[in-house]
Amino acid sequence: MQLNIDGIDTRYVLSNEGGGPWLTFIHQLGGDLSIWDQMAGYFRDDYTVLRYDVRGHGATAVMDADFSVADLAHDLASLLDALGVTHTHLVGISMGGMIAQQFALDYPQRVDTLTLADTSAGTPPEGRALWDQRAAAARSDGLAALAPATIGRWLTPDFQQAHPEVVEPIREVLLQTSPQGYARACEALRDFDVRDRLAALHMPTLTVAGRHDTGTPPAATAAIAEAIKGARYELLDAAHLAPIEQSQRFAAMLETFLQTPV
């Protein structure tokens, strides 16, 4: 399904078997909504599950202008408005986790619970150059040049060997990502920093990290939990895409979290 959101053609998918509360999933840099296919199947009987492609990713267009993570959070707010959604449970992984943090800060009344996987609350000064390098590489050489190292960060070697049926679709989505969309998103993430604002968040929060995540070390995700009062922190035996590599454990953990009374 497509909607024009603030001038951007945006793809979204609703999985709604039971007509339950809204549950929104946001994907990673270089991904699309398909990363959450399994989770949507798991939760659709009890929730109205929304997945969408972030601007410049998947089938969502990228505008010829720079954008910020705050702009990406506004995109989500506009999508929810268009669908008539006043509030939702929110789950984000990696870049999606950054968008979710920004959304929770900008629209706190619209977030029932917040789940953040394999993400950070800001790029330290020494990390900014890496985002610039990735943006430049995407523009000059395309995503194929970045794919081997990216998949190596996202999933452990053991998982890659055991589950090619999972890995190959993820790789294909990465390869098909718009180089310009990817590059502009890198620059948005480079400038993202809400570390000094997290204490303002008061919704129930679950944070999840992968023990073998080299791209976003578990300490970065743990620091988010430490900054948000009452937040939970869980560590899974996985790399960067922990909800994919440990999908059953993540789904069970999320289900329990969503059902816990506030």
Rank of each mutant, 00 (worst) to 15 (best):
A100W: 01
R153M: 13
P204C: 07
L189P: 00
Q133A: 12
T113E: 07
V262N: 09
Y12L: 04
A137W: 09
L76W: 03
Q133S: 14
L258C: 11
A149L: 14
A209T: 06
A121L: 08
V167S: 06
W131L: 06
A220E: 15
P124E: 11
L29F: 10
G97M: 05
L146K: 02
D81C: 10
R44D: 14
G127C: 06
W36C: 05
L116G: 00
G30R: 01
W131E: 03
L29C: 04
M63T: 11
A239V: 04
A82H: 14
W22N: 12
S94E: 00
A222W: 11
Q102L: 14
H202Y: 07
P164G: 10
E172Y: 03
A59L: 09
L146S: 07
A82C: 09
H212G: 03
L235G: 13
P148K: 13
I8P: 00
A242Y: 00
T207H: 04
T214P: 02
I228C: 01
G58P: 01
T88V: 12
F25V: 03
P179W: 04
E245R: 06
A225E: 02
L14N: 13
A238C: 08
I170W: 03
Q176Y: 03
L258W: 03
R51H: 05
I244A: 02
L241H: 06
Y52M: 04
E17C: 10
V13H: 09
G18D: 12
P217F: 06
L33P: 00
A136D: 15
A238Y: 01
A252S: 12
Q133T: 14
A65C: 14
D158F: 11
D106C: 09
S15Y: 09
